[in-house]
Every structure is written in structure tokens, then in C-alpha cells.
């Protein structure tokens, strides 16, 4: 295990390479998912309003008769 972590004396170059790759790519995934969730949340009231508007004309008709 010690030998594995030591990377033949090149630990200070090998592990940061893997570390920065993992960190940046994980951050990219998290940022992308968060952005999608935020857009979906902002869009929801508009989609709900549109659905309600589609239903309303039928209801108004039944009330007036």
C-alpha cells in the first residue's frame, strides 16, 4: 500500500494529476445538474399556468350555461 501511494517516487506528480481531474469533472457534473434543476424550477410556474389556461375555457363555458 505504501509502495502504491509512493508511485515510485513520483507521487507528487501522479496523484495531483488524478486529483485535479476527479475534482474538476465532479464539479462540472454537480454544476450541470444544479443548473438543470434551477431552470426546471423556474419554468414550472409557466408550464402550470399554461396547463391551467388550457383547462379554463371549458370551465367558463359550463359556468355561463
Amino acid at each position: 500500500m505504501q509502495e502504491f501511494l509512493n508511485m515510485g517516487g513520483y507521487a507528487e506528480f501522479v496523484w495531483p494529476s488524478y486529483g485535479v481531474s476527479v475534482l474538476l469533472l465532479v464539479a462540472l457534473v454537480i454544476a450541470s445538474v444544479r443548473r438543470l434543476r434551477r431552470v426546471e424550477r423556474d419554468l414550472k410556474p409557466f408550464e402550470d399556468a399554461r396547463k391551467a389556461r388550457r383547462r379554463r375555457p371549458a370551465r367558463q363555458e359550463s359556468m355561463s350555461s
Binding site: 457534473v29 443548473r35 438543470l36 431552470v39 423556474d42 419554468l43
Partner: peptide, 16 residues
Amino acid sequence: TIFIIRVKAEILDRRL
């Protein structure tokens, strides 16, 4: 995988 998440966000953002 990342592209699919991001492009969906872009399409919905445009709709918004």
C-alpha cells in the same frame, strides 16, 4: 452524460 444534462438545461432555458 454531461452533454445530455447541459443541453436539456439549455433547451428549457430557451423555453423559459
